[in-house]
Design a protein around this nucleic acid. Structure first.
Lengths: 167, 167
DNA sequence: GACTCACTACTCGGATACCTTCTGTCCGAGTTACTAAGG
DNA sequence: CCTTAGTAACTCGGACAGAAGGTATCCGAGTAGTGAGTC
């Protein structure tokens, strides 16, 4: 079992978007994190499709969080990028083979599927209990409250070294 | 995120091995579940490598559980087949890019990695709380206590329709 | 009748192709801000 | 000075290759049971 690597990128993007005051283009987010811009764009599109971020087009366009960071859970981001399907899918093995159970006797999921579903629910509950705002708060505790502000300034047009005029 | 399909097969095999009184060859387990014998063998090898089942060779060989089913957790089986690595791997994005954090400031995992690790721990704890014996008990509750005995009889040499002499 | 030996059949184990999914990249459609001209 | 049309640059969005891991398969090494032969 492996989680898509894009999940990490998407989470970082959501956290830094907390500090942004204007739409941030995907290219700038990619430069900040030093990752492939084209591939990051794909993750942001997934976030947009899920309704977590709004995409504004045009010259000063980019991505913005659609709602307060406290209302976006980590689970929302994970499911947006990685899909909401559970990790375990029961193929109803018990209905196959020479000793197959008759379908009418299978009113509830088999014990194995129930166990896996329970674990899946625990995992999702843990992720649902943490919001993007919580993550941003933890970043402030870890590295001081100025880092996020610095990132926000760097993200704003003209703030970074790339787009800044040099005369 | 998707769990390997072999996990389901391995769990079913462990449950039915509970009812076996003699080593059961992989081919018979595959026939019982109506799945590919060659591929199921791979999963059983993983279980053997993890020390959950013992493989006995020779004419009346097969697989046997190494210890009581109550001492084998679902997590053991999942980790044996799917690997024990966590689903989320932090690539330390915070140390990259123009605003990279200096490595000496990264004494603890970043908040995102911490959140994912916490969820992963909850998932594993849920799986650790259920044993193969629990699964077997639930099967008995669902379908009556005779099914497992029937399966045990079918698994024993000469019990099934395939290996039974027909004269 | 008991023992020894060779044989056969059956088992696991690892090495080998195929395919779906994830990763990474590219170019086109659409929108916005800016500029300059005209009233 | 205000309005307006045009231009240009920048953005997102989906369609297109490459690589990795999972899925499925096969054949070889090794072992226990079986039978015949011998003492």
């Amino acid at each position: 079992m492996k989680l898509s690597g894009g999940v990490e990128w998407a989470l970082h993007c959501c956290v830094v978007l907390t500090a942004a005051t204007a739409p941030v283009p995907a290219a700038r987010l990619a430069e900040l994190h030093d990752v492939s811009g084209s591939y990051l764009a794909k993750q942001l599109q997934a976030l947009s499709r899920a309704g977590l971020v709004d995409s504004v087009q045009g010259k000063a366009g980019g991505y913005v969080l659609t709602r307060d960071a406290g209302q976006i859970t980590v689970l929302d981001v994970v499911e947006a990028v990685d899909g909401a399907e559970p990790a375990f899918v029961c193929t109803e093995i018990r209905r196959r083979g020479p000793l197959a159970k008759p379908p009418e006797a299978c009113t509830r999921p088999c014990p194995i599927a129930r166990a896996m579903a329970e674990a899946d629910a625990a995992w999702r509950a843990a992720l649902r209990g943490i919001s993007v705002a919580d993550l941003a708060g933890s970043v402030g505790e870890d590295s001081g409250p100025t880092v996020l502000a610095d990132i926000g300034a760097w993200l704003s047009p003209g703030g970074g070294g790339a787009g800044a005029p040099r005369e």
